[in-house]
């Protein structure tokens, strides 16, 4: 990365950075005041990460940074240096949809769908820590993701279905 501690660097000149996104390294140039959300959507064309309130009040821009759910609207692109970023585009594997994605589709856990990428990634992080979460754990851990269609029950049920299938090793049956 270009040394950002240099006081004379003009605020509007782009910095060149290697971003590690969904397991691949990308060479990206962007202005220093861009949020990671803006860098992902505008400079990398990864528009699966949704742009909501931009103030940390809705959770729809949630991505995983080193496996932990983070708000990409309140993180600068510059701060992603050296971290492993995961967006919804990286969720499906070579064998197709992730079990969470399959369960969300089957159970209708998406209504307007705007909160779905954030919920899926936050849910993936919960299951990575706790493969059989209680409903109370899900409610607590997903408390930062709002669904304005208020479809919470189906979202919890879909995550529980995916968790059960992942335990049995049968991703979509």
């Amino acid at each position: 990365m270009k040394p950002a501690t240099e006081p004379d660097s003009p605020a509007r000149s782009k910095v060149q950075m290697i971003l590690r996104v969904n397991g691949e390294s990308h060479d990206v140039a962007f202005v220093p005041h861009k949020t990671l959300l803006e860098v992902l959507r505008e400079d990398m064309r990864l528009t699966g990460t949704k742009h909501g309130c931009e103030l940390g009040e809705c959770g729809t821009c949630t991505i995983l940074v080193d496996g932990v759910p983070r708000l990409s609207c309140l993180m600068l692109g510059l701060e992603s240096d050296g971290h492993d970023i995961r967006t919804i585009e990286g969720m499906a594997g070579a064998c197709g949809a992730h079990p969470l994605q399959t369960a969300f589709a089957e159970l209708g856990a998406a209504q307007c769908g705007y909160c779905t990428p954030g919920f899926l990634l936050a849910a993936e992080a919960v299951l990575a820590r706790d493969p059989t979460p209680s409903r109370a754990t899900l409610v607590e851990e997903l408390g930062g993701n709002l669904c304005r269609c208020t479809g919470y029950l189906k979202i919890y049920e879909a995550i529980e279905l995916a968790a059960a299938r992942m335990q049995k090793g049968t991703p979509d049956a």
Binding site: G56, G59, R70, L71, L74, A122, G143, G144
Partner: peptide, 9 residues
């Protein structure tokens, strides 16, 4: 306080 994501930041 706040939400899990905000508490991380």
């Amino acid at each position: 306080a706040a939400s899990p994501q905000l508490r991380q930041r």
